[in-house]
């Protein structure tokens, strides 16, 4: 019983991280119809930026996070204005090729600049154990889960309750009508991509402080994020959160009671079952858009 509680707690923590990692991907797909294969690399760049800010520039964690968000947001904006802009409204394939190319470019550039060594980011709290009854967590993990919740909530509020968010939703519903109503859609697309990039980067830095990061980390992150997004429904906010938690807990239970060596099989099983029984995901995008 104690073991079960610990497994579920482990699963919920990693599930929260999966949710945050997947959120940027689902947002960009839901609002822009761009399948961003460079998502994992943006996550990786967030970790590398966070490392640069805290270790090389000597900033504290929160100042480093703010700087990382600012720089990565600007990067996201530029990527949209100078790259994705060129293939907009040409269907999905050109943007897929573009983002795959971008992911290769980013990995190798980072490899050239930072090297292959694993990077550790100093967290804001010590990694001391916290005992909740029979369950062990660390202060940093509790903090990271809280930070995930805050970031997810903030992104939700931006989209639901700001002028920019309304413009985003309007542009997604009908770009032509949005333009006729006076919305600068180019700016809306760039903001959306910047927001998605910032979410990926914040996940990269947050998780880099708990584990460690390295320039080849992107691939695995993209893989899990795609599982979460397919399970939750492409473009669904709630889907990313629920999908992340389901994947986290399922992996923890499989690892706990069957074997940890085969845990990656869970993601594939989930994708296959979702595509067979609920091809649009648990939260159909028909009902709710991010």
């Amino acid at each position: 019983m104690d073991m079960l509680l610990q497994f579920v707690a482990n699963g919920l923590v990693s599930g929260a991280f999966y949710a945050l990692s997947a959120l940027g991907l689902t947002l960009i797909f839901g609002l822009m119809r761009v399948v961003n294969f460079a998502h994992g690399e943006l996550y990786m760049l967030g970790g590398v930026m966070g490392w640069l800010a805290t270790t090389v520039l000597g900033l504290n964690f929160f100042a480093g996070l703010a700087l990382t968000l600012a720089v990565m947001g600007a990067c996201g904006w530029l990527v949209d204005r100078f790259l994705i802009e060129r293939v907009r409204d040409q269907g999905e394939e050109p943007s897929i090729l573009l983002t795959i190319g971008l992911s290769i470019f980013l990995t190798n550039t980072a490899l050239l600049l930072v090297g292959t060594a694993p990077l550790t980011i100093e967290g804001p709290l010590p990694n001391k154990p916290v005992f909740l009854g029979p369950v062990v967590l660390t202060e940093l993990r509790v903090f990271a889960v809280a930070a995930c919740a805050v970031l997810i909530l903030a992104a939700h509020l931006v989209i639901r309750h700001t002028r920019l968010g309304r413009a985003m939703r309007a542009t997604f519903q009908d770009p032509m009508a949005a333009r006729l109503a006076g919305i600068n859609t180019a700016r809306v697309y760039a903001s959306t991509f910047a927001l998605g990039t910032m979410l990926a980067a914040s996940a990269g830095m947050l998780l880099g402080s708990i584990y460690s990061t390295h320039v080849s980390a992107g691939g695995l992150v993209s893989l899990k994020a795609f599982v979460v997004v397919i399970l939750g429904g492409m473009g669904s906010f709630a889907g990313a959160i629920v999908g992340g938690l389901i994947l986290g807990v399922a992996e923890a239970l499989w690892g706990g009671y069957i074997s940890t060596g085969t845990v990656d099989i869970i993601g594939f099983i989930i994708v296959i079952l979702t595509l067979i029984f609920k091809p649009y995901g648990l939260f159909s995008t028909q009902v709710e858009r991010a």
Binding site: G255, S259, T260, G261, V263
Partner: peptide, 13 residues
């Protein structure tokens, strides 16, 4: 027990 290359969270293990 075994874990996969690049795994980050070992709490279950």
């Amino acid at each position: 027990e075994y874990f996969n290359h690049g795994a980050t969270d070992f709490y279950t293990l």
